[in-house]
Design a protein around this nucleic acid. Structure first.
Length: 569
DNA sequence: ATAGGGTTAG
């Protein structure tokens, strides 16, 4: 039945039966039809047709006409849950989550109780808005109103907590659910993929099958996204087989997840094989394929693939900021200015150069290619500077010897109200090392935990050991390493050996070198460093012994390589 | 109500 046929009935004016008008509401397809019906509704008695306003509002929302939706809402005195839901969903749909949330609060103040659909919609808004406080508030509402056992609101709560990285809360809600539907299981499996917890994901998959539910495309996509690293390649292949058997491989999301999984598991051959077998490839799948290569260290290949994508007729979609950011990271690894400029120009041409992630990628890539100043200009032009932007520019300043500027930028960042994270302190300590700001570095190392609550990790220790080593406080550095809450790796010991070598400390150097031989027996650089200490002390016998040992084991030091540019690329 | 690709971090 269509609106035109039904519409003839409206010639009878407001004498239409409520049920009849409601049927017209179902048939509304075009925006103009909705407006016609809206006019009719206003002249009639609104309270006669309780479900019609909701249908109309939904129709406006579906056409993206928020203004008319709000106008209609304002005209309706008796607002049901369904009407509120439609309005809240309308705003959530166009990603205006803060308005959606404020309508939720208005709804509660007006005394209308939310249902599962309302809460699901609001929870999504919290996740998208990075608002864990809002999510826990909704959680509280759910407990007090008994909606905590509602399957739709429950699944939405699990999803919201997991997107906000509140994994334990997500788990707890999931565990306490009286009955878990497929959506809840899928959501929980996807939650594992955000944290890369493959073991837990597989365990949940097992639990899902035990429960008698049949996994679907969402399940497999989530499960595949959990896998990372060579060790899991076999499991990935097994799950791929299962997908083939169940007939899910025509699903575009799932195929893309497979391409990405093979790259993450370092099976680029399988990623290529699968990718090349696809008859239709969309932007996201291209992006997964290209990024897979750059993350596996095949950066030149990833740039070549991008060029292939741009010239192939297969991909109708234009590259977006996500792909550009990923390519810029490949340029940074290559330290090659030509592709960097190529990608920058491309971003300018398609107008995504001012995207935050593209700007961050450009700052980093220009810095690593030796053109830090160009990166600083981009930073200055950014209308909105995020934590990542600050971290990137601080690192760029620090690694280009501008320690003082890096410290000033850190202060500016704090003044903007941004909270530093572990990458901020890595960048700052790196800056201190490069500029010899050893007192400043020590202060930062202490402040990071006491003032900002950031726990030092292994790379922070590498820097602080280097800073101690610079001024010859080798014993202090040694004591610090031994008191570390995490097991020191070759990076930390290597930093101390470097300190020993520049200060010619033979005794400590020998102790440290011994530890390094245990951790990395095949790496000759440590033996060379120790032999340099011997050489300074004119212990030629020891030098000869070490050099002989290197030769005897058939080992040789990998020479360092410096190059200006790979001209052919 | 759930899905695929991303930027900084010796």
């Amino acid at each position: 039945m269509n609106f035109v046929v039904l519409g003839r009935g409206s010639e009878f004016g407001s004498r239409c039966a409520p049920g009849f008008l409601s049927a017209i509401g179902d048939a509304v397809q075009a925006l103009s039809q909705a407006k016609q019906l809206h006019a009719l509704l206003v002249t009639a008695d609104l309270s006669c047709h309780p479900s019609l306003p909701t249908k109309l509002l939904r129709s406006y929302a579906n056409h993206g006409d928020i203004v008319s939706a709000r106008h209609l809402f304002d005209q309706i005195p008796h607002r049901t849950v369904l009407l509120w839901n439609s309005l809240i969903r309308a705003h959530a749909r166009c990603r205006d989550f803060s308005t959606a949330f404020s309508f939720f609060n208005q709804m509660r103040r007006s005394g209308v109780n939310p249902d599962g659909f309302t809460l699901a919609c609001v929870l999504r808004a919290c996740a998208e808005h990075a608002d864990p406080f809002g999510a826990s508030m909704v959680h509280g509402t759910m407990i007090s109103s008994g909606l905590v056992s509602d399957s739709i609101a429950g699944a939405a709560l699990v999803n919201s907590y997991s997107k906000l990285n509140f994994v334990n809360d997500a788990h707890q809600v999931f565990d306490e659910m009286p009955e878990r539907d497929l959506v809840s299981w899928n959501t929980m499996i996807m939650c594992c993929s955000y944290g890369g917890n493959a073991h837990k994901g597989l365990e949940l998959f097992h639990g899902l099958r035990e429960s008698g539910e049949k996994p679907d495309g969402y399940t497999f996509t989530g499960l595949i996204s959990c896998l990372r690293g060579s060790d899991l390649a076999c499991i990935g292949e097994g799950i791929h087989g299962l997908c083939l058997k169940e007939g899910y491989t025509s699903n575009c999301h799932l195929r893309c997840a497979l391409v990405s999984m093979y790259s993450r598991c370092n099976v680029l051959h399988s990623a290529s094989l699968l990718f090349r077998s696809l008859s239709q490839v969309d932007l996201v799948t291209w992006s997964a394929f290209i990024t897979g290569f750059s993350q596996a260290g095949e950066c030149e290949e990833s740039i070549c693939l991008f060029r292939e994508m741009m010239t192939s007729s297969q991909c109708a979609a234009r590259p977006d900021s996500i792909l550009i950011a990923s390519l810029l990271s490949a340029c940074a690894t290559l330290a090659s200015i030509r592709p960097c400029k190529e990608i920058h120009c491309f971003a300018l041409r398609v107008g995504i150069n001012s995207s935050v992630s593209v700007s961050c990628g450009l700052i980093d890539a220009y810095s690593k290619c030796g053109f830090a100043q160009d990166g600083f200009r981009i930073f200055e032009m950014m209308p909105r500077r995020t934590l990542v932007a600050y971290n990137t520019v601080i690192l760029s300043m620090g690694s280009n010897g501008l320690g003082g500027e890096a410290m000033q930028t850190f202060v500016a960042m704090l003044n903007e109200g941004l909270k530093p994270d572990k990458a901020t302190f890595s960048a700052l300590l790196c800056a201190c090392c490069h500029s010899g700001l050893q007192m400043e570095g020590r202060k930062l190392f202490n402040r990071m935990h006491s003032e900002f609550g950031v726990e030092p990790e292994i790379d922070h220790y590498v820097y602080i050991v280097k800073l101690f080593g610079m001024v010859g406080e080798l014993q202090e550095a040694y004591d610090l390493i031994q008191a570390m809450p995490v097991v020191p790796d070759s990076g930390v010991w290597g930093a101390l050996l470097w300190g020993c070598s520049i200060h010619g400390n033979k005794e400590l150097g020998e102790i440290v070198a011994k530890k390094l031989y245990e951790i990395e027996p095949r790496k000759t650089a440590y033996r060379v460093m120790l032999s340099n200490i011997y050489a300074v002390k004119e212990k030629w016998g020891d030098v000869k012994y070490l050099r002989n040992e290197i030769a005897k084991e058939g080992m040789h030091k990998i020479p360092g390589i410096s190059w200006i540019e790979n001209i052919n690329f």
